[in-house]
Amino acid sequence: MAEALLGVVFENLLSLVQNEIATTFGIKSKVEKLSTTLDLIKAVLEDAEHKQVTDRSNKVWLQQLKDVVYVLDDILDECSIESGRLRGSSYFKPKNIIFRREIGQRLEEITRRFDEWRQTSSFIAEPKVFGREDDTKKIVEFLLTQARDCEILSVYPIVGLGGIGKTTLAQLVYNDVRVSSNFNTKIWICVSDAFSIKRILCSIIESIIGGKCDALDLDVLLRKVKELLKGKRYFLVLDDVWNKMQQLAFGLSQEKWNTLKSVFMCGSKGSSILVSTRDEVVAAIMGTCQAYPLYGLSDNECWLLFKQYAFGNDKEEREELVPIGKDIVKNVCI
């Protein structure tokens, strides 16, 4: 049902982009941004529903996305109705000006809400991932050998440039069947630029108990997480961690990490945390072992990835377009 609604809304957005009324309303750039965002969200929702998600925190996140899509659908309906009503009348009537302003403000709010919820999740939205087999194998082997035999908590950072595939690699490791069978509990948290101790603790609680976390007191949260993790061999992914600096006051600091780590240490032998970050300082603060550096794909892997998007999984590549495609890959491949 969600996929069907998203398909309709996506088509309506594309139609609105091509309609002159989007330009007249002054909302064309907002609509184009929403179209790109919806395309990404559609892939995540389809994959999540296909896998019959049961994790509480992910179910809440998915429902919130669906709710915003319904609101967006209503806004698009109003734009369509107004477009028909305005044909032949002046766009500069006070009533029409007020409508345009209200629509612009509502789309701005929808965009903001989508941006807030465009967090990462443990679901792999891509039909096939290229070039990360060896990376996945190395990290999984570390978790099942060195980390499993370690008496203290293992924190393994993945470090690489933004957009290079750190989250995808973490997803591949998280969903590996060997990892799933090795740990009593698995938890995925997208940290992003705000390293909030309370939010991280609440997310852990919600993921484990499958219910909403209402506690506000930090001490209560710390005690609850310690109780839930005690004696368990758990696997925790902290995705997209940022360092605290002058421009990012809410990022990670040594003090914040010390507070969380004191609770994470209560797990049983073999408990592990996988951290993804673009910042080597984050890796130095959190890591208990040497960071795993992630590099770009090879030319051939870039081509396979490009070909998937350009020609699709079930379509044969058009011979006359292959040289053009390979030239594009050479220019854009990291």
Rank of each mutant, 00 (worst) to 15 (best):
I98R: 10
Q64E: 14
R113F: 02
Q64S: 04
L45W: 01
D73P: 02
V60A: 13
D67A: 10
D55M: 03
I110D: 10
N96M: 09
V68R: 00
D115P: 00
S83C: 02
D77W: 02
L72H: 04
K93W: 07
F92Q: 08
R87P: 04
D74L: 00
V68I: 12
T54Y: 02
E102P: 00
Y70F: 13
K51T: 14
L45S: 06
W61G: 02
R87K: 11
S90M: 11
S83K: 01
Q64L: 05
V60L: 07
L65T: 07
F99R: 10
R101L: 12
L72Y: 04
L62N: 05
R101A: 08
V69M: 04
E102A: 10
R100F: 01
Y70R: 02
T54K: 11
N58A: 03
I98Q: 13
L107H: 01
P94Y: 05
V53D: 08
D55K: 02
R112G: 04
Y91V: 10
N58Y: 06
V53W: 03
Q105I: 14
D74T: 01
D55G: 02
R100P: 05
I75Q: 00
E49D: 15
D55C: 04
H50V: 10
R100W: 04
E102L: 09
L45F: 08
Q64F: 04
V69K: 00
L65Y: 01
S80V: 05
R100S: 15
